[in-house]
Design a binder for these strands. Structure first.
Lengths: 139, 139
DNA sequence: GGGCTAATTGAAAACAGTTTTCAGTGTGAT
DNA sequence: ATCACACTGAAAACTGTTTTCAATTAGCCC
C-alpha cells in the first residue's frame, strides 16, 4: 500500500509544490485499490478539495507517473486508467468485475524472452504483462 | 502472413458484403507488417479506392477484429494501432523504432499464472503479454 | 507574521480521435 | 435487369485530453 506521506515526499523532493488540489489527488490515489480513470479521480478528489479542476488532475497524474508513483493500466477497452504503483518493475492483475488492481512482481519470463529473441531476431528491451480475472471478492 | 483472400473468405462467411472500400482496407491490413493507426490505414486504403472514408475504415476494422483477423495493439503511448493477427491466441513483439509487429505464439506462462493465482487469490482468466525491442533491421 | 515571486490553478477554448446520423449508393440475390 | 437492403461518406455530435491565460497561492525571505 502506498502512503500519502511517501507520495508527498516524492513530490517535494522533485521541487514540486504541495498544493491543496494536489494533496487531494494524492489522497485519492493513495487510497485507491483499483485502477481509476482521471474522471473518477477528479470526482473523489473533490470530496477533499471541492474546487479541484479536472485539468489539475491530469497534470498531477502526469507528475505522479513521472515520480513512478502511479502507473497507467491498459485494458481491452482502452488505456484510461491509473493505479498506484510500488517502486520498481511490476505487473498488474485486474479484476474484470470490479476493476480492482493488484500488483505482482515475479516475472519469470527470462526463458520465454530468450526463445522469442532467437526466433524473431528482435532484441527485446522491455516487456509488459497484464493478467485479467476475478478477484477473491468477485469470485 | 495473412492472405487477402483468406480475409475475404472470413468476411463473406459471416454474411458481410465485400465492397470496394472494404476490399481496400483488407488489402492494406493484409500487407501491413507493422501496427497501423486507423488514420494510416485510411491513407493507404485510398490508394486502392480513392473514395474510401475514414468512417468506413473504423467500421471495417471493427468487423475484422470481430472475425479475429486483426488485433488491437497497445503501446506506452496509447492503444491506437491495429495489426494483422493469425488465428488463435498470440502475442506481439513491437519494434520501438519502426513499429514493426511480429507475432509469437508460445507463452509458457502456466507456472507463473499458478504462482500469481496462489499469491493474490485472483482467478486468472486471461493474460496479455507484449514485448518491446528492436527488430533485426533497426538493431 | 506579512510580503514577494514564480509556480500553480481552473474556466473556457482548442484539439484529436472516434461514433452517430442520415440521405444517397452499390452489392449480391433473384 | 431489377430489387431490397446492407453499406457508404460527409457532416455533426461526442468524449477524453491538452492548451491558453488571467487570477491565485505555496513556500521562501525578512
Amino acid at each position: 500500500m502506498l502512503s500519502e506521506s511517501s507520495l508527498a515526499q516524492a513530490f517535494t523532493a522533485r521541487g514540486y509544490k504541495l498544493t491543496r488540489p494536489r494533496r487531494a489527488v494524492l489522497k485519492v490515489v493513495a487510497q485507491a485499490g483499483a485502477g481509476l480513470s482521471p474522471a473518477q479521480i477528479h470526482a473523489r478528489a473533490k470530496k477533499f478539495h471541492p474546487h479541484t479542476g479536472l485539468v489539475t488532475v491530469y497534470r498531477t497524474l502526469d507528475l505522479l507517473a513521472e515520480c513512478g508513483a502511479v502507473r497507467r493500466v491498459h485494458g481491452e477497452d482502452g488505456c484510461h486508467s491509473y493505479a498506484p504503483a510500488s517502486a520498481g518493475h511490476a505487473h498488474h492483475v485486474i479484476c474484470g468485475q470490479c476493476h480492482a488492481v493488484v500488483e505482482f512482481e515475479e516475472c519469470d519470463l527470462a526463458e520465454l524472452l530468450k526463445t522469442v529473441q532467437r526466433r524473431t531476431g528482435y532484441k527485446i528491451q522491455e516487456h509488459w504483462l497484464e493478467l485479467f480475472g476475478l478477484c477473491p471478492n468477485c469470485r
